[in-house]
């Protein structure tokens, strides 16, 4: 079966709008992934519908704040908390916010630095 599996880089100002559109067309939130890059973070939000998968990608600066999508997809809370705790991505209005107590690890944001 042929199915889409594409990555689309989008701007931060379009992000919230795009996620709302995804929900309106009943796409299912598949995963959220943070990657550390030189200039900051790469956030990938993947959505699935039927057998297609679309990944929306945001490039976020080190200190830049992004808004949480838990208001749209409540199930995002685990993975967003994880990104914020392990990578130190600044996510606003996260609900529920574990305040870096999801994994309760001793080391702070272990994925922020390489090695």
């Amino acid at each position: 079966m042929d199915c889409k599996n594409i990555i689309e880089v989008i701007e931060i100002q379009d992000f919230y709008q795009r996620v709302i559109e995804m929900k309106m067309h009943s796409w299912r939130l598949a995963q959220i992934c943070a990657v550390r890059i030189d200039s900051g973070y790469e956030m990938s939000y993947s959505f699935c519908k039927d057998y297609d998968m679309i990944t929306l990608r945001l490039l976020v600066g080190m200190e830049e704040k992004i808004s949480s999508i838990t208001q749209i997809y409540p199930c995002a809370f685990l993975q967003e908390n994880e990104a914020s705790e392990l990578f130190g991505v600044q996510i606003e209005s996260l609900d529920p916010n574990y305040h870096h107590k999801l994994y309760r690890i001793e080391k702070e944001t272990p994925f922020k630095e390489k090695g």
């Binding site: 598949a30 995963q31 959220i32 992934c33 990657v35 409540p74 199930c75 809370f77 685990l78 993975q79």
Partner: peptide, 22 residues
């Protein structure tokens, strides 16, 4: 995500239970 060296840049695994907890 690979960067051309023998060590990967990032490996991410989203497991079924992560999605099934909510």
């Amino acid at each position: 995500k690979g960067n051309g060296t023998k060590n990967l840049d990032r490996f991410r695994l989203r497991t079924p239970t992560t999605s099934n907890i909510p």
